[in-house]
Design a binder for these strands. Sequence first.
DNA 1: AGGGGCATTGTACTTTTGGGCAGTACCGGC
DNA 2: GCCGGTACTGCCCAAAAGTACAATGCCCCT
Lengths: 209, 209
Amino acid sequence: MEQLFVSRDGRERPRWREAFDCCVVAAQVSEALALSRSGRPVLWLDTAGLDTRARDARLAEAVASGSPVVVMSPTPGEREALDCLNRGAVGYCHVEAVPEQLREISVVVQHGGLWMLPELVQRFMRLSQRVVPTPAPERPELNELTARELMVAEQVARGASNQEIAAALAISERTVKAHLSSIFDKLDLRDRVQLALAMNNIPTVTSVN
Amino acid sequence: MEQLFVSRDGRERPRWREAFDCCVVAAQVSEALALSRSGRPVLWLDTAGLDTRARDARLAEAVASGSPVVVMSPTPGEREALDCLNRGAVGYCHVEAVPEQLREISVVVQHGGLWMLPELVQRFMRLSQRVVPTPAPERPELNELTARELMVAEQVARGASNQEIAAALAISERTVKAHLSSIFDKLDLRDRVQLALAMNNIPTVTSVN
DNA sequence: AGGGGCATTGTACTTTTGGGCAGTACCGGC
DNA sequence: GCCGGTACTGCCCAAAAGTACAATGCCCCT
């Protein structure tokens, strides 16, 4: 399996070569992708020397390629890990991680897994627990939705318009509206904005508070 | 690699056998471990028919063995996922996951990865983000917004209508619209739904895709 | 066979949203 | 003083969103 490394100056770190037989190094995400010969390589993003903006831009580009993206930071931190994983990265480690670990990470992300430092996993889980209403089993009202309604709701949660939803589900725009009306009724929401937020567990002015 | 399945009645589900050549099934964690012959098997915990207490007890026992533990739920939910992962599980999936997925999960957890449904990963990251202090500018484009525009954007992020925003800021609805148009233009967004999501760091169909 | 829930669509209507065009006003810099 | 950016507003218009009323078809259950 191919490993594509992207670092600011396109320079390779010795450990990468130690870890993998087949690895490509480039200074830009696009270059790396161009040099790739396999369908679904692992993209390693070295953030050394990059500011937040540059990092996010590269990350977005990398994630858009469809390949699993691992961010390698010279100074791994909770905040950065969170940012990167939230933006679609599936791995986060130290840029000087030992070859053995690099190989493990590669295996994990290629199989759909998420990899980060174990202590971060624990920490995030605990953090999440704090903000998830303890007794609440998800959004209870969500179970009231039919399968079809849920599909519509999920599209709205991603910012899709009625027209786009209709196209995606191969139904008429009128039907989308019908489903939406039903959803608003069941979940006690006013419009698609509130639905989009509710689907992402974000309280709204009128529903909560 | 050995797979140890623990289900309430010690009954095996056909998919498990489909997924793995070598799998052991038992009714108790201790039994499964006793039947194990490899040093570090993967422990699969079927929570069907278990109440929360029984589930946690088995999970604790399983985690204590040192092997990676994957919880398989007949009704996967955010709350349960959180609970289980927080208690040391490294995987969480549907009890009837397809064999292909089971194999992937096995590979991932054996290599130190974390596996859960992709949508849950995203959700947890977002939730964590809400409680981690924000030293970073977050969304860089947000700096492009004027103070007034930011106020409007924040209202939209809470699901407010133009009328409500106008009332809150003591300006006319027309002015709200003017600010919104400017915001959409600057942030390259289509409508208020996308803005509401963007303000909450949630990617939309068109912006991140 | 009938009833209820779900999915689907149509016509028609109101409301909300987004934006074009135009104008006023304040403020700060060259 | 002029110019550019920001804030604010009006009238008007088109598109999108949302609703009311109504109808068809399917499936499941009694």
